[in-house]
């Protein structure tokens, strides 16, 4: 049992709901199947474009260089992969991985439109069971994806396995606001405005309600830091962004 992500042998969180562990991946897939086509538009609307700045800082922290191999897990529509593709150059490689085929399909189409597929492999993969060789990746990023993984600890261990020694993991995820006032405003926004926007744009309020609930059930900054350390990473730290609404955790494989 992993206490930090409320996973027991037979049940786990799906937002505020408890579901059978085996069912969670399917339920998450339904959510993302529903939102895939409008995912980027909704991200821009929900965050007021801030998600681009959060991702930009994550890319800075990656310190990725030409010739390296980058794995972008839960990469969905491929916005991070497109940026990494430019950074690693023709000698490097970016692997865009996602468990959801609909999201990957949208991502692949976007990358083809941008002409950025020459050094990008698109792989449908579960973060808990990464289908890559041990010690083969220089940098792993997972942006707004870890909270949807059934067993987060197992996924972090899997990431640790495939990273090269000295390689780094970056987890960009919603977290806990540091100010109580901001926390109240944020709660009101995510439980009222977010589902309303979801209803208006994708005709699916439930999926966006799940997103808001899953954010609240996700481990806070310190708990996630502990999980990253428990997975075997060293020199772990995190940076809060936008008052702690989002945090990026960094760990190095020793």
């Amino acid at each position: 049992m992993s206490s930090q992500d409320n996973l027991t042998d037979d049940s786990t969180d799906f937002g505020y709901e408890r579901v059978k562990t085996a069912e969670k991946a399917g339920r998450v897939r339904e959510v993302f199947d529903s939102v895939a086509a409008q995912y980027d538009l909704m991200n821009d609307l929900m965050s007021g474009g801030l998600h681009r700045l959060w991702k930009r800082f994550t890319i800075e922290l990656s310190a990725v260089r030409s010739g390296q191999t980058v794995l972008d897990i839960a990469g969905g529509t491929g916005d991070l992969a497109a940026k990494f593709s430019k950074l690693v150059g023709a000698d490097g490689k970016v692997i865009l991985a996602d468990i959801n085929a609909a999201m990957l399909s949208v991502g692949r189409d976007r990358l083809i439109d941008k002409g950025a597929l020459s050094n990008i492999d698109v792989v449908q993969a579960d973060a808990q069971f990464l289908p890559f060789e041990d010690n083969s990746i220089d940098c792993i990023t997972i942006a707004f994806g870890l909270r949807n993984v059934t067993d987060k600890a197992k996924a972090l261990r899997s990431m640790h396995r495939v990273l090269k020694p000295g390689g780094r993991l970056l987890v960009l995820e919603f977290s806990k606001p540091t100010s109580p006032l901001l926390s109240k405003v944020y709660d009101a926004y995510s439980f009222s405005a977010l589902p309303a926007m979801g209803k208006l744009i994708t005709d699916d309020a439930d999926s966006y309600r799940y997103l808001a609930e899953s954010i609240r059930k996700h481990p806070d900054q310190e708990s996630l830091l502990e999980m990253v350390e428990d997975a075997g990473f060293v020199d772990c730290r995190y940076h809060n962004m936008t008052g702690g609404i989002v945090a990026v955790h960094r760990g190095i494989k020793g």
């Binding site: 700045l53 959060w54 800082f57 940076h239 962004m241 936008t242 989002v246």
Partner: peptide, 12 residues
């Protein structure tokens, strides 16, 4: 400083 703010200014 909030890295997101710096990232925004840098981007601009």
């Amino acid at each position: 400083h909030d890295p997101a703010v710096i990232a925004g200014v840098s981007l601009a």
